[in-house]
C-alpha cells in the first residue's frame, strides 16, 4: 500500500520534472532575445532536477544516496546563476539584445554617462577609470 503511494508520488514528480525541461525548451524557442532566453534556460531546470532527484530518492529508499542527490542539486544551484550571469554579461556587452523588448535600461544610462565622462577627461586617467567601472 505504502509502496503504491510512494510510486504514485514519484511518478508525479518525474512527469512534473520532465514538464520543466519542456518549459525550458519552449522558452528557448519562444522568448524574443538572448537575455530573456537565459531565464528559460536556468530557472525551470533547477526545479526540474530537484523533482527528478526527489523521485529517484523516493524510489531507491536508501539513506546512503541522499547526500549525493543533495550534492547534485547544490552543484546545480551554485553553477546555474554563475553561467547565467556570465552569458548574460557577455550578451549585453556584445549587444546581443533587442532594445525594443526592454522597457527600461538603467545600465545603458550608466554606461553612457561613463563614456561621456571619459571623453571629457580625455587624458591618461581615462583608461584606468574605465577599467574600474567595468571590471
Amino acid at each position: 500500500m505504502l509502496d503504491t503511494i510512494i510510486d504514485v508520488i514519484a511518478s508525479i514528480f518525474m512527469i512534473l520534472g520532465c514538464l520543466m525541461s519542456l518549459a525550458a525548451g519552449i522558452g528557448m524557442l519562444r522568448f524574443p532575445d538572448l537575455l530573456s532566453r537565459m531565464h528559460a534556460a536556468t530557472k525551470p531546470q533547477v526545479l526540474g532536477l530537484f523533482l527528478l532527484l526527489a523521485a529517484l530518492g523516493l524510489e531507491l529508499r536508501s539513506w546512503v544516496i541522499v547526500p549525493v542527490l543533495a550534492l547534485a542539486w547544490i552543484v546545480q544551484l551554485l553553477t546555474a546563476p554563475v553561467s547565467a550571469h556570465m552569458v548574460g554579461r557577455a550578451g549585453y556587452r556584445t549587444r546581443h539584445l533587442k532594445r525594443e523588448t526592454l522597457l527600461t535600461d538603467e545600465l545603458a544610462t550608466v554606461v553612457a554617462a561613463a563614456a561621456a565622462r571619459e571623453r571629457k577627461e580625455n587624458g591618461e586617467d581615462t583608461e584606468s577609470n574605465r577599467a574600474d567601472f567595468i571590471d
Partner: peptide, 17 residues
C-alpha cells in the same frame, strides 16, 4: 517562466534595472 514561455512568448517585455 513556464507560463510566460507558453502563453506570452515573443511578446514578453523585460527591463534592465
Amino acid at each position: 517562466v513556464m507560463y510566460l514561455a507558453i502563453f506570452r512568448g515573443p511578446k514578453t517585455k523585460s527591463a534592465v534595472i
